[in-house]
Structure formats: structure tokens, C-alpha cells
Write a protein that binds this DNA or RNA. Structure first.
Length: 171
DNA sequence: GCCAACGTTGGC
DNA sequence: GCCAACGTTGGC
């Protein structure tokens, strides 16, 4: 088992090409030029935006991802990429924008050694948080992974989606 | 708290 | 390699 796991680990964990490739179910390598935008989810009772803000410029490791599609998205993140910070379960809204400050490395909370984390820091809050209901009500956002793959905890966001959500959020 | 959706595991 | 069972996520 260790050898096989190690082999798979090395294989899957490679970043795809020099451009960014966001991954969603059924579209393993959706090639998108200059994919710089993401969305990460957290239950605020586990890790909230306020806690993230409190970490300041040092940021915090985004640990606990245990899904292979989400892992691939973590691997594909580049330093400087932006991510919406979404509160799942409670709030159900995008509350802020975070920035990737350290690229993928082994998740220290994962004993199996299969998963990775990145470090992110809070950049700024959305003046008006954007709720899941507002997103579902906006036809232009019908293809957002948040809507189509609701269980995916680390998702790519297109540049158009990013712009629109920022606008809806008062930026 | 319920339950639909869906990812993962393991038996065959 | 299929698929049933199981576990988890997350909106409602």
C-alpha cells in the first residue's frame, strides 16, 4: 500500500502545465487561461472569516480538504491567486476575499499523507456579503461551481463570475 | 433535523 | 471494474 499510495500521490499532485486548470467533476482539466480565481468554503463554526482576518498577513493553513477534486484545485493554486471566502451551513454567503500566500504542501492534519493545504490570508471583506440565494437568483451565475457542484469545497471561479460577484458584493 | 447529492470503500 | 453500502456535505 505505501508504494502505491506514494506513486499515486506524486502523479496526481503535479500542477497541470503553466496555465491554471480548475477542476470540477466531469471536467477534469477544464483549461482556462490565467485561472486566478477560486472559492473556498468553511463552516464558520469551524473556521470563520473573522478568525482568518485575525491571522493578519501571516495567514493560516487551509487544512482539512479530503476530496480529490478539491485537492487538485489546491495544487493548482498559485501564490497571489484570489479566493472568495464562503461560509457554508451558517450564513451561506461569500463574506470576503483571500489571497494565496503559500502554494500547496502536505496537509499536516492528514496522517495518510495524501492531502495538501495552502496558506491564505484575508485580503478584504465584501462590503455586502453575497448569499447563495442571491447567486442562485442571478442567471449569469448559474454555471458557478457553487451552484452546480455544491459539495465541492475548493472550486475554480471564472474571471466573469469573479467580477460579477465582486460587483454584487459592493466592490 | 432532514434528506438529496455524491464521493469513497470494499466485496465480488 | 462494477456496484451496493456507507459516510459526508450542505442547503433547506
Amino acid at each position: 500500500m505505501p508504494a502505491l499510495v506514494a506513486g499515486v500521490h506524486v502523479l496526481l499532485i503535479e500542477r497541470k502545465k503553466t496555465w491554471m486548470a480548475g477542476t470540477v467533476p466531469g471536467h477534469d482539466e477544464r483549461m482556462v487561461f490565467a485561472m486566478n480565481y477560486w472559492l473556498v468554503k468553511s463552516e464558520p463554526s469551524t473556521w470563520s472569516w473573522d478568525q482568518q482576518v485575525a491571522k493578519g498577513a501571516k495567514g493560516e493553513a487551509w487544512t482539512g480538504v479530503r476530496n480529490f477534486t478539491a485537492r487538485q484545485n489546491l495544487v493548482n493554486m498559485k501564490k497571489g491567486d484570489k479566493a472568495f471566502f464562503y461560509h457554508s451551513n451558517e450564513g451561506k454567503e461569500i463574506v470576503g476575499i483571500a489571497e494565496v500566500i503559500k502554494e500547496a504542501y502536505p496537509d499536516p492534519t492528514d496522517k495518510s499523507g495524501k492531502f495538501v493545504c495552502v496558506d491564505i490570508k484575508a485580503e478584504k471583506p465584501l462590503p455586502k456579503p453575497v448569499s447563495i440565494s442571491a447567486i442562485k437568483a442571478e442567471k449569469k451565475l448559474a454555471d458557478m461551481a457553487l451552484v452546480k457542484y455544491s459539495r465541492l469545497s475548493v472550486q475554480p471561479v471564472t474571471a466573469d463570475e469573479w467580477k460579477l460577484v465582486c460587483k454584487m458584493g459592493g466592490l
